[in-house]
Design a protein around this nucleic acid. Structure first.
Length: 155
DNA sequence: GCCAACGTTGGC
DNA sequence: GCCAACGTTGGC
């Protein structure tokens, strides 16, 4: 089993939105980055766990946990001209973009702001803390995962 | 295949 | 709103 961190802007779709979805499950659509596409298509497996990270908000940080409940399949929003993430170059017969399904697991009693993550020596190597990293999905090590979950649950 | 221009991300 | 960092596009 692997661990991940997945970013979303809570103004668009936050952890509370996920919890309110039917079966607390949603598809993680709209990714238009090849590296992230490859992770969703090839690497993420049912049962993997992911941190739900709130980006572009005040303050940015980790809000809780979700799990992967369906492995990579074509992102149909790329085929819809009405969709803001429409990509005419993605052909239903040869889809360019993929997504996974995620299910809400828990919302942390203690939201963890990015500033707190940065203070942890144990998390210094986290992808999300590296300069210039803009990927919306990154792998998280077991050690990092355990530390963050502990922080979120309040030690 | 190079690379300048442009677009996007996302913290601050 | 600014801007650094990075990805993508397209002319050549």
């Amino acid at each position: 089993m692997q661990y991940w961190l997945m970013k979303s802007e809570p103004d668009e779709f936050g952890i509370d939105d996920l919890e309110r979805c039917p079966d607390a499950t949603a598809h993680w659509d709209g990714c238009r980055n090849y590296q992230v596409r490859n992770m969703m298509r090839d690497e993420m497996k049912v049962g993997d766990r992911a941190l739900f990270y709130h980006s572009n908000t005040k303050p940015p940080g980790v809000a809780g946990i979700m799990e992967i409940v369906r492995e990579g399949y074509p992102d149909h929003t790329a085929f819809d001209p009405e969709d803001p993430h429409y990509d005419p170059k993605s052909d239903p017969d040869k889809p360019r973009w993929f997504m996974v399904d995620v299910r809400f697991v828990e919302k942390f009693p203690h939201y963890i702001p990015l500033s707190e993550l940065k203070k942890q020596d144990a998390l210094a190597d986290m992808k999300i803390l590296q300069r210039g990293n803009r990927l919306s999905i990154t792998p998280v090590s077991k050690k990092e995962w355990n530390r963050i979950v502990k922080m979120g649950r309040g030690k």
